[in-house]
Design a binder for these strands. Structure first.
Lengths: 212, 212
DNA sequence: GTATGTGAAGTTATTCACAGCG
DNA sequence: CGCTGTGAATAACTTCACATAC
């Protein structure tokens, strides 16, 4: 499922280059997977390829966005305006992909009332009223680990249905809410593992498929 | 494999709470996986459990860190000191987990010579000399998407063996170097997908196992 | 000829079920 | 008993192989 996003990235790239048709092989290659995989991924949602020719880049893009639900723009809330939160609310690639921040929350009195990326920072106590009024259903969580779980619960009560959590906290997702975790440390740990077992460079003759 | 990191997070949590023994069930639960999974994961690297009692929290932590290779501290380079790069170099959780930034690079003349988190910013042209001198083997890449691939290649030539790439660029990993991608947009797209198909709240009775 | 779509085969990952040990 | 460790069974995922369409 995550692969659909990867195809999207590739399609964005092709659109910029003005390419109009793409084959399953081209879509598959950078993901290190066979072309049948791509065909099957796309095949699950209907058949939008042209035999002999490939897939139309633009139509495939809009099909995939249709599947992911990012053709209409999502309103997103940010909770936790620290260094990471600030970087995320300013992250320039969200907007073209269908995500727009509409509210920001933090508990630091010094930050409340100030703006970041044009958005006013409110105290977390106001989350419920503001988010329900705006009808926000997605949130990005960039708070310290101890705060993550209680805030996630509040968000859930405020009607938020999907939370992207950047803390390394481990928590049970509140009922009815999906949580996706991005644990940055764990990615470095993964690299440490992969690199650590490769003593010198070049040595590894292993086919290096997945291996996660 | 990624699950080892998740166990580590849980163990850090337990250590803070002063817990000394933990069962495979406890370790497994927040990952939404059966306890046998945890036992098998750990079993792959030896048997460090005590039957009838569980696993010793501290020893298990050091065993897992041993497996991941994070018992000795890794020196890490940052390339791209934008909002995201700055947030990453300041990220407080790297250090206790065995990662320490020792160098930063950017091409913006205004940034070169200044410091972030106590580390001087150098031009990317100096990457090779500085990184080989320091013997840095891991790098975090937070540059605009177009710059990602060339920089990754330079890093590889500078002896870096593992790259954590935060751009959404798709690229073939340079020979002998492992690249791990964190595509932030794709995580929101995933949530969009998960949330979009859940019309109201509460509706979904599905067992909600993996589903990625 | 070229590239999709898809059953069938093969591979990998997860769970079951239980023996073994403190 | 409680909980680990692990063969055997099951499920999930990926690749093979080829019929099908342009």
């Amino acid at each position: 499922m995550r692969r659909l996003s990867a195809y999207l990235r590739k399609l964005e790239d092709l659109i910029e280059k003005g390419v109009e048709q793409v084959s399953s092989r081209d879509l598959a290659e950078h993901i290190k997977v066979g072309p049948e995989m791509t065909r099957r991924d796309l095949g699950m949602f209907g058949q939008f390829g042209n035999r002999g020719r490939g897939y139309g880049v633009e139509t495939l893009q809009s099909r995939i966005r249709g599947i992911l639900g990012t053709q209409k723009e999502w309103d997103v809330a940010l909770v936790g305006v620290g260094d990471l939160g600030r970087a995320l609310i300013r992250y320039p690639e969200f907007s073209p992909r269908g995500f727009r921040f509409v509210a920001a929350f933090d508990n630091d009195p010094k930050k409340i009332g100030t703006r970041v990326a044009g958005i006013e920072i409110h105290p977390t106590s106001k989350m419920k009223s503001i988010l329900t009024r705006l009808g926000v259903r997605l949130a990005v969580l960039a708070v310290p680990p101890q705060a993550a779980e209680p805030v996630a619960r509040q968000l859930s009560k405020a009607g938020v249905m999907g939370i992207l959590d950047f803390s390394s906290a481990v928590m049970a997702p509140p009922d009815g809410t999906v949580i996706d975790h991005v644990d940055i440390s764990s990615h470095l740990e993964y690299l440490s593992f992969r690199v650590g077992s490769t003593r010198s460079r070049k040595q590894s003759k292993t086919r290096s498929r997945k291996q996660h």
